[in-house]
Design a protein around this nucleic acid. Structure first.
Length: 207
DNA sequence: CCAACCCATTCGTGTTGAAA
DNA sequence: TTTCAACACGAATGGGTTGG
């Protein structure tokens, strides 16, 4: 049961990001938006792209449609790909997001094997899923098979001692301060071996 | 208040490629 | 070849802010 719940919160987190409908976006506005997002002036952006600022101005005002060469330079200067120039920005891509979660104020999510405290839960559409977990499981048998999902996972032991079972490696005993990083598509289950339930910081990538 | 500045836009010109 | 349209540039212009 535990592994199902575990997989579920990850899936929910993954799906909570709003889907972006690809709609035609006009290049002019997009370029200006990208430039502004970096806090650049026309001069700075033009220097980055290797274009004249007047040219960039015209592009942003729809007075000129750039050649493919200019588009390539522009994309390079803005450190993005050419296709991204025509892709409307996803909502969460706005720079400067932040979420602070005070100790013990994460969103609780209980399972038979783990007690999850989701951190930065207010932040939607994020690339990582951080949570603190209390490991209640004491033996591998408490899980029904391997826990596995997409993405990569980072694990840092906060208190106690855990044993990390993985599909392809020998079980690892990890104590406070130890950490592990692994592909989450590889089966992975965690149990406490210390007298008290261990707690760990887990970060799962949602990409 | 005005000078000095910064930034964005507009203007005038050179270049290039395609059509007549 | 001449003509025309479009791109790109630097210089000039205009709007807005800051400091004396």
């Amino acid at each position: 049961m535990g592994e199902i719940e575990h997989a579920k919160i990850i899936r929910i987190a993954r799906e909570s990001g709003e889907e972006v409908v690809p709609e035609p976006v006009d290049l002019a506005a997009r370029v200006r938006e990208l430039r502004k997002a970096r806090g650049w002036t026309l001069e700075q952006a033009a220097a980055q792209a290797g274009l004249a600022r007047s040219t960039l101005s015209k592009i942003e005002n729809g007075q000129m449609s750039p050649t493919y060469e200019a588009l390539k330079k522009l994309a390079e200067g803005l450190a993005i790909s050419v296709p991204q120039l025509f892709t409307p920005p996803s909502k969460g891509q706005v720079t400067g997001r932040m979420a602070v979660t005070r100790a013990g104020e994460g969103v609780a999510h209980l399972t038979t094997t783990y007690e999850h405290e989701l951190l930065a839960n207010a932040l939607r559409n994020k690339q990582m899923l951080p949570y603190r977990a209390r490991i209640r499981a004491r033996s591998f048998e408490e899980f029904h098979g391997w826990v596995r999902h997409d993405g990569e996972e980072f694990l840092y032991v906060l208190t106690g001692i855990v044993r990390l079972y993985t599909e392809f490696y020998e079980p690892q005993e990890l104590k406070r301060g130890d950490s592990a990083y692994y592909d989450a598509s590889m089966g992975h289950n965690l149990v406490s071996v210390s007298h008290e339930d261990a707690t760990v910081l887990w970060v799962t990538s949602l990409v």
